[in-house]
Amino acid sequence: MINLQHVYKIYKLGNNDVYALNDISLEIKQHEFVSIIGPSGSGKSTLMHILGCLDVPTKGKYFLDDIDVSLKDDQELAYIRNKKIGFVFQGFNLLPKLTAIENVELPLIYSNISQKERTQKAIEALSKVGLENRLYHKPTELSGGQQQRVAIARALIGNPPIILADEPTGNLDSASGVEVMELFHKLHEMGNTIILITHDSNIAKQASRIIKIMDGKVQE
């Protein structure tokens, strides 16, 4: 499903080249639960951005469902992000002015789904993460763990095959972290491919496969 071949991401800083990703090749199959672990600055977020089609490699190929992503234009990439990928970020990244239900239905707005269906699906998604009684709360009126669950509901509402999570428990206390991890396990059981980025080995261990990266390279 996901296939990276000799992917580089090189940032030019003055005369220096920063190799954020340095010849990464890896394959992730459907229904896998993979964790990507590495120290700060190793290139985890950069990798996730490329996997999530938010960024393109400087060199190398990325095939998603056998499609060469580098050949796609902005609009097609937006479509892929909308349909195939659900993002969960360390900082939640909810829109502060919108209520939980409005945040959750946002991906459906960009795929032109009717208001009625959006509302129904958003309630469904929020119920899955146990927030059916917090529909009309704004992010500031929710705890960190609840905010992250709203973000997960937003990631899963369009029913994308891949869930990409970058340090989803990084800003949470351990109890909320456990709840969030339980959700990922549930999503995995329901058939989603989960890619979890973390620097916490206890969390990484919960995945069925661990990919270690260091200085932009895969270690193994």
Binding site: K83, N93, L94, P107
Partner: peptide, 16 residues
């Protein structure tokens, strides 16, 4: 800027 990034991440096109 952040809001725009979030919207794009979840599927907003440049045109949107």
């Amino acid at each position: 800027t952040k809001e725009i990034g979030i919207r794009k991440a979840i599927g907003a096109t440049n045109k949107d």
